[in-house]
Simulated assay, not measured.
Amino acid sequence: MHHFARRSAATTMTLAAAALLFTAACSSNDSSSSSSSTTNAAATSATGAANESGANQSGANESGANAAGGETKIQTPNGEISVSGHLLAKYNEMGGPAGALGAPTGKSVSGPDGGSCQEFTGGAICWSEKTDAHVVWGEIRKAWDGHGGINGKLGYPTTDEKDIANGKQSDFTGGTITWVNNQTSVTEK
């Protein structure tokens, strides 16, 4: 199920970004207000799915090129929760509130080496300057949490979950977790 959601989210975001770029490039009016209006209309279209799901964009570049500086506030049963910076960029890449990660369950927390993680109903996104932002979910997430998460020997994820023969794999700064034939194995470096 996660594969379908990830592919759908990636396709939707790619099409929205292409529409934004196409609309901005095709604007024949040199007036800045008209150009800004055209770009804003395309950006609104690109982020419409997130906004329809209760997200409120503020300060983000909707094309995703500079999303590391933005913030989104998402209405949840526990109140409004912010997703920002590198976590927001990855969250949007994964489909935002309508994607497989779903809504945030709490605010982001600081991790070692200046990094951060944020929990969502469908998994977690963790970021550090050395690793960038990656998603951890499912059985691999359970094993990672069981080994201390970012504060354990495995540390930050360095890849998103990827397909391998008969299963999945995620790499971390301190090792690898595989899920093959419904069995999880952890290999530390």
Rank of each mutant, 00 (worst) to 15 (best):
K162M: 13
P157D: 04
A65V: 08
E52L: 10
K162C: 02
S116C: 10
M13D: 02
N56T: 15
G111E: 10
G122A: 12
K153A: 15
I125C: 08
I74H: 05
Q57N: 06
E62S: 05
E62F: 04
N66I: 04
T23I: 07
S27V: 07
T14P: 02
A67R: 02
F4H: 14
G174N: 07
M94G: 02
A165W: 12
M1G: 08
L88K: 03
E161A: 09
G85C: 11
G64K: 00
S82R: 14
T76S: 04
G48W: 06
A67I: 00
N29C: 12
G54K: 09
I140R: 05
G70N: 01
G96D: 02
D145G: 04
Q169V: 14
S45H: 03
A67W: 00
S108K: 14
K189G: 07
A18I: 07
V186E: 05
E52M: 06
Q183M: 06
T38I: 12
G149M: 07
V180C: 02
N66L: 09
V136F: 06
Q75V: 12
A16P: 00
L87F: 05
G115M: 12
A10I: 01
N61S: 04
S82T: 15
A18E: 12
W179K: 02
W127Y: 15
E161N: 10
S185A: 14
K153C: 03
A133R: 06
G175Y: 14
G79A: 09
G85L: 10
W179C: 00
H134Y: 08
L20N: 01
E52C: 05
K189E: 08
L20A: 02
L21R: 14
A25L: 11
G111N: 10
K130S: 15
M13L: 09
K153M: 02
D160I: 10
T187N: 11
Q75K: 14
G148A: 09
N61Y: 03
A16F: 01
T187C: 00
D171G: 06
G106E: 13
K90N: 06
H2K: 04
N92Q: 15
M13I: 05
A5H: 09
I74V: 13
A25F: 08
H147F: 00
G106R: 13
A49N: 05
T23L: 13
P112Q: 12
A65W: 06
H3P: 00
T12K: 12
A65P: 00
P97A: 15
A55N: 01
Y91E: 01
C26L: 11
T159E: 01
A41M: 00
I125W: 06
A133I: 12
G99H: 10
T14K: 15
V83S: 03
S170T: 11
A46W: 00
S170L: 09
T39R: 09
M94Q: 13
A19D: 07
G59N: 08
A68P: 00
A25C: 08
K168E: 09
A46S: 03
N56A: 14
I140V: 13
Q169N: 05
S63C: 01
S170G: 10
A100Q: 06
Y91C: 03
P112Y: 13
I81Y: 06
